[in-house]
Design a binder for these strands. Structure first.
Lengths: 324, 324
DNA sequence: CTGAAAGCGCTTACAG
DNA sequence: CTGAAAGCGCTTACAG
């Protein structure tokens, strides 16, 4: 690869001038500029970002550590981020932590060593505070979870999502409701049930013991809920598969509501509590940029999800509402 | 951020020694090593990859330019790549070109300027040869398409996929088949039809004129195909939506087969021509590493897709086969 | 086993 | 408007 010195020699100028031509920070004589550019083109020269970053002490890299790529949710954020950051001169470095705190630690170290100027990550609750939180140079931005109150945080109001979803089901007359997941959103359920004077739903969590498919199947058969509310897209997927296997169709046999609007939920007309991920991604990018460029203080922004109804939830008739 | 000099001072050694301690390339006295590490910990020191890369002229970065994040296909590859490359000390830089050649050019320039050691990209056919192909330092790896015969290439045997899919439909007795997409896989269709002495299917392409949904709807209603074969996952998605809108259910009313095994295709038990993306991603990572580390010559590997049958294709009865 | 020196390819005051 | 010089934080022969 050609360097600025090669170009300088060919153009008959100093490498300082080459550098200036490429970032246009000082006025060069047009003729000089043209000579430099012609030489650069001839040698196929591109400035070396590594050297430039080292000298400027600005890597122009932003890190994003996600769980995995199978969650379409995350990937949409990644793409949106990249689209916003690229025109501002930032590049995106991606790593996957597979929901493993130890792996996340390694990825974070890697991002720090790579001099990422900001790192967006999904922190874990209830783990010992990682050492990089103290004295880490990049700005750390928490996504979805908020264990560290002195860091930036962007997320969704999950309790509100649970609340509006539950409220909706209750309003349609459902009283025997199976809620899958949502352990950290309990308040939302409590609020909705409290307001309606309804009993709490049946909760199911995949606690890693036993076969979740089987367990859910059993609940469906025994408790005969009139509605299922899956509070995470993977629970929704599981619910769908189980209902399918049991031959239960929605909304006729059972009503179905879930968190997250994915490709398949819209294809299959599933009612969802949708997170505004586009808006979130934009806010994320803005937060990163303002932390970096304006040295802003860590911010916190919470977005409210909204309900999208497509017909997978049925309003129970008076008759049905009565039976216990 | 602390530098190696800071650590050196605190540990009472030279920064050369600090550097050596951190990469263990030369034997240090254990005591020296420990002193360095203690000082490093105290100062929260991490070696600066930027400086290291610049000096070693090895960025340890691999670039991956994809179309977008909404194609689950690509993202699976990205994740697999990262998982394989990370333990080898490589980082992954991701950019999206939105299927725009001009954007791809910019992304590639960016990767080159970032000193990526290899870049994986999905080249366009029929565009003027980009200038970076001549004299670009990183090894370029073509994915899926193969316009540049002196570059590495990994992909799927699409014609074979078209062939086995078509063959399967023909064997189930289908003769009126709607094929969506697949223009570049014509040979596979020709072969399958030739072998079976069957007429060519009806082809549909989204050429950007008019509303594709409407157009497909029309074909379904007028030509009344007994099977739809979507030769790309976005066509499959579109086919699904249109059939749903028309109230056509598979396999009862119409048979349905498509390319690519996604989350929703398995959820909805759609028969697919599946690409072995995990295998591909592994081969991709190996190709990148062998180009970089062993200075290997560009390789070319083509994987064969395989058919996964789940019941969305129905075998026509003798009666049905007769009617024209 | 350890250090002094040179240099990776840039940028940026400072000078003219 | 342009150049010489110093330096970003490392690594790596070379020497001892």
């Amino acid at each position: 690869m050609a360097t600025s010195k090669d170009v300088a020699k060919l153009a008959g100028v100093s490498h300082t001038t080459v550098s200036r031509a490429f970032r246009g920070d000082v006025k060069l004589r047009k003729e000089t500029y043209d000579r430099v550019m012609a030489a650069a083109r001839q040698l196929n020269y591109t400035p070396n970002y590594l050297a430039s970053s080292l000298k400027k002490r600005r890597s122009q890299m932003i890190g994003f550590i996600l769980g995995d790529a199978s969650n379409p949710f995350f990937m949409g954020i990644a793409e949106e981020l990249e689209a916003i950051l690229e025109p501002l001169g930032y590049r995106l470095m991606i790593a996957f932590d597979r929901y493993d705190p130890e792996k996340q630690r390694k990825m974070m170290q890697m991002m720090i060593a790579s001099q990422a100027e900001a790192v967006i990550f999904i922190p874990f609750e209830n783990i010992p505070e990682p050492e990089y939180l103290r004295a880490s140079a990049p700005r750390l931005i928490q996504l979805f979870r908020n264990p560290y109150h002195d860091l930036s945080y962007l997320g969704f109001d999950d309790n509100y999502g649970a609340y509006i979803g539950m409220k909706y089901l209750l309003e349609q007359g459902h009283r025997r409701i199976l809620v899958m997941g949502g352990g950290d959103r309990r308040q939302g359920f409590l609020d909705a049930c409290g307001e309606s004077g309804a009993p709490l739903p049946v909760f199911f969590h995949d606690d890693g013991t036993g076969d979740p498919q089987k367990q859910v199947e059993e609940i469906l058969l025994q408790k005969k809920p009139t509605a299922v509310f899956a509070v995470a897209n993977w629970y929704g997927r599981q619910a769908y598969m189980t209902m399918r296997r049991l031959g239960l169709r929605f909304p006729e046999d059972i009503s179905f509501l879930m968190f997250d609007d994915l490709q398949w939920t819209s294809m299959m007309a599933v009612d969802v509590v949708a997170q505004p991920i586009r808006t979130l991604a934009q806010a994320l990018a803005e937060e990163a940029v303002s932390l970096i460029q304006d040295n802003a203080l860590p911010g916190r922004t919470v977005f409210k999800p909204r309900l999208i109804c497509r017909g997978s939830v049925r309003s129970l008739s008076g008759e049905e509402r009565k039976e216990k």
